[in-house]
Simulated scan of single mutants.
Amino acid sequence: MNVQQLMDAVEQLNARDALQCKLSLDEWKALAPYLSVRFMRVGDPLMFEGDADREVYILAEGEVEVRIQDHALATLGAGNVVGEGTFFSGEPRSATVVPTKTGVAWGLKWDRFEALSKKHPGLAIDLLKGLAIVLAIRMRQAVLVEHFA
């Protein structure tokens, strides 16, 4: 899998909750060894509600549906981040994420992030800031939706 494809997907995503760290190709290449590649198949969940694996995914291609108790909440495509809540908190996942189109997701586990932060602290901080922005925007959206629903 090509890290350029991942970089392009992130850069091309025009969404309020897009990953806002602007990494160079060299930085993406430095990050790539810490990531795992997951080939997504339609209907084969990327993560399950209640699981506690501390892994965040960045979608390079394809599309996923975010579900809570079988109710669809969101559809996310290439360039989006998914799983950021459990990545940061270590708490069980709040949703099941199921691919609706085949694609590729790049995963970063917490222990690999810790290794990255020791070897490339500046890169880790940039990535962390970008993921924190995604989390903050999504939390705010969820609070506003709940408040006005």
Rank of each mutant, 00 (worst) to 15 (best):
P92C: 08
L116N: 11
S89W: 05
E114F: 04
T100Q: 00
T86H: 04
R93G: 07
L116C: 06
K118Y: 08
R112H: 14
K118V: 13
T100H: 01
A95E: 05
A95V: 06
P92L: 05
L108H: 01
T100G: 07
F88D: 03
D111Q: 15
S94F: 01
V104M: 00
V104H: 00
F113S: 13
T100K: 12
L116R: 04
G90I: 05
W110Y: 08
F113Q: 13
K119F: 12
W110L: 14
A105N: 06
T100N: 06
W106R: 13
T102M: 10
S89T: 10
E114G: 14
A115F: 12
T86R: 01
D111Y: 15
G90Y: 10
R112F: 13
P92Y: 07
L108C: 08
L116P: 03
V97M: 08
A95I: 02
E91M: 14
V104C: 03
S89V: 02
G90E: 08
T86I: 03
T102E: 12
L108V: 04
A115G: 13
K118M: 06
T100D: 02
S117T: 12
V98Y: 01
G90K: 10
A95H: 14
V104I: 06
G103W: 06
P92Q: 03
T102S: 11
E114S: 11
T86L: 04
V98K: 07
F113H: 13
R112V: 10
K109N: 15
A95R: 10
T86P: 07
W106V: 03
V97Y: 05
V98H: 09
T86K: 06
F87Q: 04
A95M: 10
E114R: 04
A115C: 11
R112Y: 09
